[in-house]
């Protein structure tokens, strides 16, 4: 059951990811990315991360990607023109990427323990309560720094996007 669920959602994530790279129109790419994020949220649930799955839905697919879709619609930009791939990119890009991916999977296969796999419900230490406790005790300083970062980002976005005052 676990393996089937994993394979289904992993397949959705990979197919949507490929679609995101292949599609010429930015809105198609954005929706594919939403698909990837929703599939990842389901995988987080399988890994016992209930809170982070909900946060993924609320923050990523519910806020960030809506912002992307909003900007794409606002600019009403059409499909991408034929992209220019330089020769070195054409002949070395894909093989290098494959090599990179191969090395990563090889390392992953070698380094991780083969014995204990992921079972649903095998780890219950990451509910909202535990995350909240950890966030406001051990990680209090990063939390506050992040809030200041967000404040700066909001101010920056307003300054960048406002109309020029003559």
């Amino acid at each position: 059951m676990d393996a089937i669920l994993f394979l289904v959602f992993a397949a959705i994530a990979v197919i949507c990811g490929i679609n995101m790279v292949v599609q010429k129109h930015p809105i198609a790419s954005a929706l594919s990315l939403v698909g990837v994020m929703a599939a990842l949220a389901a995988l987080y649930l399988l890994l016992g991360g209930e809170f982070i799955a909900a946060a993924q839905l609320v923050v990523y697919s519910g806020a960030i990607m809506v912002l992307f879709v909003f900007v794409i619609m606002l600019l009403n930009a059409g499909a991408e023109k034929k992209s220019i791939i330089r020769p070195w990119g054409k002949y070395f890009g894909a093989p290098l990427l494959l090599v990179f991916f191969g090395i990563m999977s090889f390392v992953v296969q070698r380094m991780t323990p083969a014995s204990d796999g992921v079972t649903f419900g095998g780890f219950r230490g990451a509910g909202p309560r535990e995350i909240g406790q950890s966030l406001f005790t051990v990680y209090l300083l990063p939390f506050e720094v992040t809030s200041i970062l967000i404040l700066i980002a909001i101010l920056g976005a307003i300054v960048l996007a406002r109309k020029e005052i003559d």
């Binding site: 676990d2 990979v14 991916f101 992953v108 991780t112 323990p113 083969a114 796999g117 992921v118």
Partner: peptide, 23 residues
């Protein structure tokens, strides 16, 4: 199919998605 999903599968999926992002 294994009864529990190996950790490596998740990490490989992550590698695939990361490669797609780079691409």
């Amino acid at each position: 199919l294994p009864t529990s999903v190996p950790i490596a599968w998740y990490l490989t999926l992550s590698a695939i998605l990361f490669s797609l992002g780079v691409l």
